[in-house]
């Protein structure tokens, strides 16, 4: 056990401030353990989301020493022994209280995306898909909806274009549908016109913060942007699509 110092943002949408706490930290602790200890010993009304405590649910997103992180996957021994740990809520979303932000906007974006429209099953009642063909979709489906990518995306974080761009999370969702071997829906036009794929200028910040190590920019956003470009500006591709169908 060693004493460590924390500065945690306390407040609500009327404003707030950093409050300092000192607690004894045990072996193997992560930042979320420390928040819980502070709750128990110093601030029982401290608001913080969490669930699985194993990096699988994406609830405990927060900004730790300025970086969007999961509290449950940030080990205390990743900091210097004297380093003060500063914790604040996600900046890209309105604060509810303390470390909890209002992330409902994300759920609204998901609802706007046309869902999977699967093709018919084979005569034997099975869908057939090869593992090689689902690998790339499975990468996207690892997403735990922690919204750290949304938080770090400068289109949302700094420019607040929530009404223009669905953000990296939902570009990943769109890619997972567009590359789904069973899907027959077409979302490419909407991607440009409604979901704002053009707003992303590929700074790769989202990829860097993804706790699931999804290749958000290279594997999801860029291929989707390419589809938009092909559709919008390539007349030959347009012609082939008309004749032979989508994929």
């Amino acid at each position: 056990m060693a004493e460590r110092t924390f500065k945690i943002w306390r407040g609500n949408n009327d404003g707030g401030e950093f409050v300092e706490y000192k607690i004894d930290v045990g072996p193997g602790w992560v930042v979320l353990d420390c928040v819980h200890r502070i709750q128990q010993q110093h601030a029982t009304d401290l608001a913080c989301r969490w669930n699985c405590k194993a990096g699988k649910c994406g609830s405990c997103s927060m900004e730790i020493n300025g970086k969007p992180r999961l509290g449950c996957m940030t080990r205390m021994n990743s900091f210097g022994p004297e380093e003060v740990i500063t914790i604040q809520p996600l900046k890209a979303f309105p604060v509810i209280k303390d470390l909890v932000t209002d992330v409902k906007w994300n759920y609204e974006q998901n609802k706007r995306i046309p869902p999977l429209k699967p093709k018919a099953r084979g005569a034997d009642g099975h869908h057939r898909m090869m593992q090689e063909d689902v690998d790339r979709v499975q990468e996207f489906r690892k997403c735990i909806e922690c919204f750290l990518c949304q938080d770090t995306c400068h289109v949302l974080r700094d420019h607040e274009k929530h009404d223009k761009f669905v953000g990296p999370r939902f570009m990943v969702r769109l890619a997972s549908l567009e590359m789904h071997p069973l899907d027959t829906e077409d979302r490419v036009d909407k991607m440009r016109k409604e979901f704002g794929s053009g707003w992303c200028n590929i700074t790769r910040c989202c990829t860097e913060v993804c706790p699931e190590h999804i290749g958000i920019t290279d594997n999801a956003i860029i291929p989707m942007k390419e589809r938009v470009v092909d559709r919008t500006y390539d007349p030959i591709a347009w012609f082939f699509r008309k004749v032979f169908g989508k994929k």
Binding site: N12, Q39, T44, D45, L46, A47, C48, I96, K97, D98, V100
Partner: peptide, 14 residues
């Protein structure tokens, strides 16, 4: 006993 208000209050929930 839970302290403070009922807004997102971990102690109250517990």
């Amino acid at each position: 006993k839970a302290h403070s208000t009922s807004q997102y209050n971990a102690g109250w929930h517990t």
